[in-house]
Design a protein around this nucleic acid. Structure first.
Length: 492
RNA sequence: GGCCCCGUAGUGCAGCGGCCUAGCACGCUGCCCUCUCAAGGCGGUAACGCGGGUUCAAAUCCCGUCGGGGCUACCA
């Protein structure tokens, strides 16, 4: 890497990856790529009760699918590994020990109930609730007393008594007064280190220069800055406090932060629905960032080239599925026919459309049919409904019930009969010829409205009232199948 | 309750003191095109939360207010 800008994406593996998290990853990625820096991927799995291996794998898989490639982290390694915090516990234990020895932190023997009770009292008095410093200066005697009662202490950080100010990349100068930032726990009574310790520790050790993260971590920033000051004294990291930038929330319906529980937030859902990585990422980029010049449609490469943190907005953004879908549709139209055909095929495979794997004939058919559906698809999951009539075996072909009832009526029987005659008479079974003949006979000679007459034929041939263009579909399907499908309907 | 963040159409973004009678996109909607549905073309709808300042001039700066959101854990 040609300079030393280092950013990181550090999710904890709990539940499905969600879009807000991905947006954060994307901005970090773009920032790193734009600045020719290093994008570090770190796993914050210090909460054994909530973390899962399944979630960890989903995370890796998702970033890979999206193409958010990382320079250091799981799988690829790096100079500052390991990159899973569960594999770094001795490091944190060592830092905790130094913090304690140098009096930046202290043992606190208060029980959770005691702390909670005092917090309540503070709230009632209108004070900032938080730890009151009870155990800051215990005498040796008091410690012995607590220990004799079997109490095990947490390690608590001693917040300095001064206002903490930083220049946020997104929000400008921010400052917090000391009375609002109480001493906080670094290590649990059972010895497990907490996020409050491990996150800044690793950022320091991994020489992270810029921290771009969600707004929810805004209020923990002053604590971390204070911790960094202590790190400098005890020789953890390089002595440089990173620059912070807090990205706006991604909101869901009803004006609340999009949470992992919302089905709309699940990345896996979008993948299953057939959103393209290009489309999803493009849309996510629009949530809180703007390209400039009213440009909204761009590739990740273009985003990286143009990414300027100054253009990140501080406003929370609502996730709008309609806009996301529209952008995705644009991306589908932009793909080459071959590429789209390939993705449609994969989508159908993932939907278990084929009994085993697609035959060469089916693959070829998808390729031929792709131009017919390219501008009709918003997401890949719609391909099934549009193309299945071309791909299924004849015995499995079915006509949609409702469409049949409204369009395959008695009045339309002559149309179907006439269609048979026309088709039988055509030697060269091609779109243009079909179009001309049907127009001549059905519209001009019979005087029928194409809208109505062609719909009946459409339903018989494709099984639906809404389908790819009729004559193109016929050509692809072939004379024999078209004839047999129409005859089938006449019989009924 | 305390602290903090945010406030331009329904949604996202543009706007950085005069080019703003506020631009773009999605949405919604009218018309055209048309074998369905799309796509495409041409229109329409709709916003600077409110109140004070500062200034010749404010969506843009300041203050207040109201509204929304977040944090307030031995979660991250």
């Amino acid at each position: 890497m040609s300079n030393n800008i280092r950013v990181r994406f550090c999710p904890s593996p709990t539940g499905d990856p969600h879009v807000g998290m991905i947006r954060t990853a994307l901005f970090n990625w773009a920032f790193a790529r734009h600045n020719k820096g290093t994008f570090v991927f770190r796993i914050e799995d210090t909460d054994a009760a909530r973390d899962s291996e399944e979630s960890y794998n989903a995370l890796l898989d998702s970033l890979k699918w999206l193409g958010l490639n990382w320079d250091e982290g799981p799988v690829v390694g790096g100079d500052f590994g390991p990159y899973r915090q569960s594999e770094r516990l001795e490091i944190y234990a060592d830092i905790a020990k130094k913090l304690l020895e140098n009096k930046f932190a202290y043992h606190c023997y208060c029980s959770q109930e005691e702390v909670e009770e005092r917090r309540k009292a503070q709230k009632e008095k209108g004070q900032t609730p938080g730890y009151d410093g009870h155990c800051r200066n215990l005498t040796g005697e008091q410690v012995i007393n607590f220990e004799s009662k079997g109490r095990t202490p947490v390690l608590r950080f001693k917040m300095p008594d001064k206002t903490i100010t930083w220049n946020d990349l997104v929000r400008g100068e921010l400052s917090f007064d000391p009375e609002h930032i109480p001493d906080y726990v670094l290590v649990r009574a059972n010895g497990d280190p907490l996020y409050t310790l491990v996150n800044p520790s690793d950022d320091a050790l991994m020489q992270i220069t810029h921290v771009l993260r969600g707004e929810d971590l805004l209020s923990s920033t002053p604590r971390q800055i204070a911790l960094y000051e202590a790190f400098k004294q005890i020789g953890v990291g390089t002595g440089v406090t990173p620059v912070f930038g807090h990205l706006p929330y991604v909101m869901g319906e009803g004006n609340k932060k999009l949470s992992k529980r919302d089905p709309e937030s699940s990345l896996l859902m979008y993948r299953k629905e057939g959103f393209l990585p290009e489309g999803l990422l493009n849309y996510l980029a629009l949530l809180g960032w703007s390209f400039g010049d009213d440009i909204e449609f761009f590739s990740m490469q273009e985003m990286a080239d143009n990414f300027d943190i100054k253009r990140v907005s501080a406003n929370p953004a609502r996730f709008d599925i309609k806009k996301c879908t529209a952008i995705n549709a644009d991306w589908i139209r932009k793909l080459s026919t071959e590429e789209l055909a390939r993705r449609i095929t994969n989508q159908l495979i993932s939907e278990k459309f084929f009994t085993n794997s697609p035959t060469n004939i089916q693959i070829d058919m998808i390729l031929k049919a792709t131009p017919l559906v390219q501008e009709r698809l918003e997401k890949l999951s719609q391909a099934n409904g549009m193309l299945s009539f071309l791909l299924v075996e004849e015995k499995d072909f079915k006509v949609n019930h409702e469409d049949a009832e409204s369009s395959l009526t008695h009045e339309n029987l002559p149309v179907l009969e006439e269609a048979i005659k026309i088709i039988e008479s055509i030697e060269e079974f091609k779109t243009e010829k079909l179009h001309d003949e049907f127009n001549k006979v059905i519209v001009q000679q019979m005087g029928l409205k194409p809208r109505v007459a062609f719909t009946a034929i459409r339903v018989a041939v494709t099984g639906r009232k809404v389908s790819p263009p009729l004559f193109e579909s016929m050509e692809l399907l072939g004379k024999e199948k078209v004839l047999s499908r129409i005859r089938q309907q006449i019989k009924k």
